[in-house]
């Protein structure tokens, strides 16, 4: 069964490009354009094996999302990756403290992206 990656980013461009790479690599992809939407879906029927979220989003930001998702019993141990840029080193610590597993530095090539994902899920 293919693994499901849940993708959260307010940028439609990023959503489309990453989901394209993941789908091609054989993952099932769920998308949300905001943290609020992601939480709603997590609360409902969506199952995911990996969450990838942007940190800087309007409304609820990625760090809060990670914190909230970690509170859900079903996702206590789910790998969570966040998207970041070189300039946001300080936020890595904060996101890690909130429960993130790791990060992906934007812009990432398809190989970098898939390698990082391989690192956190089978």
């Amino acid at each position: 069964m293919s693994k499901t990656v849940f993708l959260v980013d307010d940028s439609a461009t990023i959503l489309l490009s990453i989901s394209g790479i993941l789908t091609k690599a054989g993952f099932a992809v769920e998308k949300a354009a905001s943290a609020e939407e992601a939480l709603k879906k997590f609360g409902a029927s969506v199952r995911a094996d990996l969450l990838i979220t942007d940190l800087n989003m309007p409304g609820m930001n990625g760090i809060e999302l990670i914190r909230e998702v970690r509170k859900l019993p079903a996702y206590k141990f789910m790998p969570i990756l966040f998207l970041t840029t070189e300039s946001q080193q300080s936020r890595k610590m904060e996101a890690k403290a909130a429960g993130a597993s790791g990060w992906i530095v934007k812009p990432a090539t398809a190989d970098e992206l898939l390698n990082t994902i391989k690192l956190v899920i089978k």
């Binding site: 307010d10 354009a33 905001s34 609020e36 939407e37 989003m57 309007p58 409304g59 609820m60 930001n61 760090i63 809060e64 080193q89 300080s90 936020r91 610590m93 904060e94």
Partner: peptide, 28 residues
């Protein structure tokens, strides 16, 4: 070096959370 500033970062983050509801609506 920046760990020292974590409080600052957190304060900034919580401020950001208060960004107007409207934007969150837009992203829905």
């Amino acid at each position: 070096q920046q760990v020292v500033h974590r409080e600052v970062v957190e304060a900034a983050a919580s401020r950001q959370a208060a960004v107007s509801e409207k934007k969150a609506i837009e992203s829905r």
